[in-house]
Simulated assay, not measured.
Amino acid sequence: MERIEQHASWGGRQEVWKHASSALGVEMKVGVYLPPAALAGQACPVLYWLSGLTCTEQNFITKAGAQQFAAAHNIILVAPDTSPRGEGVANDDAYDLGQGAGFYLNATQAPWASHFRMEDYVTQELPALVAKHFVTTGKQSIFGHSMGGHGALTLALRHPGLYQSVSAFSPIVAPSQVPWGQKAFTAYLGEDQAQWAAHDAVALIAKAQERLPLLVDQGLQDDFLDSQLQPGLLEAAAKASNHPLTLRLQPGYDHSYYFIASFMEEHIAHHAAYLK
């Protein structure tokens, strides 16, 4: 890993690193916030953030206002890019497929399968790199927004025991049932909807091996609420399976980072309680 950016922030340091990814076959960038305790050489837990469609590692680290709360709880924040990028990586002219739209799964279909292996990257390769280059306690949690909220929920449900806690802002909870997910899943996974269900939070809850409590915030002025997000489907699935869910519907808030920043303190405090 090579550090390419660093800024003092809330007594800690916001950094950006680049590295060659064996899972994705390209060079990747990742934001890493080191709280004061980490700079002092103390072991700290790690909280992973997964961003939404079109985002890079920069959106979260510049807009979410998360550093001050990570500093207060001495949590390392890790925010990877949303997909592989570059020449030779498959892409699409639309914003919701290809580069910037990895959906945090391992693609099985051409031309995506050779590079789009974001599940392996987030759950295996990146944690190994973080553990190698930074002093951690070995405890980790995950959260995200929109497509990244989908990623946080599904990766936590698919990998029981890997994360101490999970939360999401405006997640795509049932990608198999909405246009964003149907388009991406058809391209990345093919036509077999049984494969789709394996990456769909609403479907996964029914057979979850771990009752990890889910915290979800959703703005009620979100332009994508009815067409793409439909949090009521998650609420119904959780109720049917008796899965712990705290769904908070926030009046007046939209899909933007203004919404995310407004509740970031509460989400990081939520994770801090599990990461102690």
Rank of each mutant, 00 (worst) to 15 (best):
S170C: 13
L212A: 09
W180Q: 09
G219S: 02
F259Y: 14
S165M: 08
L220C: 07
S167G: 02
A237P: 00
L212V: 09
A237N: 03
L233Y: 07
P244I: 02
K183N: 06
H267W: 06
H159K: 10
K132Y: 11
Y258L: 15
I205F: 05
E191S: 12
F143N: 05
L204S: 12
D217F: 15
Q164G: 06
V166K: 08
A237I: 03
Q164N: 11
A198H: 12
Y253T: 01
A261V: 04
G252A: 14
L189D: 04
S167H: 06
A240Y: 11
A168S: 12
R248S: 08
G161I: 02
G144N: 07
Q228H: 14
L247Q: 05
H255V: 03
H133R: 14
K183P: 00
R158Q: 13
A168M: 11
E266N: 12
Q182C: 08
L157Q: 12
S170W: 02
S165T: 08
A198G: 04
N242C: 04
Y258K: 15
W196M: 10
A198V: 07
A197E: 08
E265A: 15
I172A: 10
G149R: 01
S241L: 15
V130I: 15
T137W: 14
Q218N: 04
F134N: 01
V202G: 03
A236G: 01
L233D: 05
F185L: 13
Q209E: 15
S262Q: 09
W196R: 07
S241I: 13
L220Y: 08
Q140A: 02
A194G: 03
A131V: 01
Q195D: 02
H267G: 01
A168Q: 12
F185P: 00
L245V: 10
H267R: 15
S241Q: 14
I205C: 07
N242V: 02
L234M: 13
H133T: 06
L214A: 12
A131H: 05
G138E: 06
I260P: 01
A187T: 00
V173K: 12
H145Y: 05
N242P: 00
P244W: 12
G161E: 12
L155Y: 10
S176Y: 09
L225S: 07
F259M: 07
Y257E: 01
V216N: 06
Y253G: 01
D192L: 05
G252C: 10
S227T: 13
V135M: 10
P171Q: 10
D223G: 10
A261D: 04
H145K: 11
H255M: 07
T186D: 13
A184P: 00
A198I: 08
G151V: 04
L155N: 09
H243D: 01
S256V: 02
S165A: 15
H159P: 00
L189C: 13
K183Q: 07
S165P: 00
Y258I: 11
A261T: 06
D254Y: 11
T186V: 04
A201D: 03
I260W: 00
A269G: 00
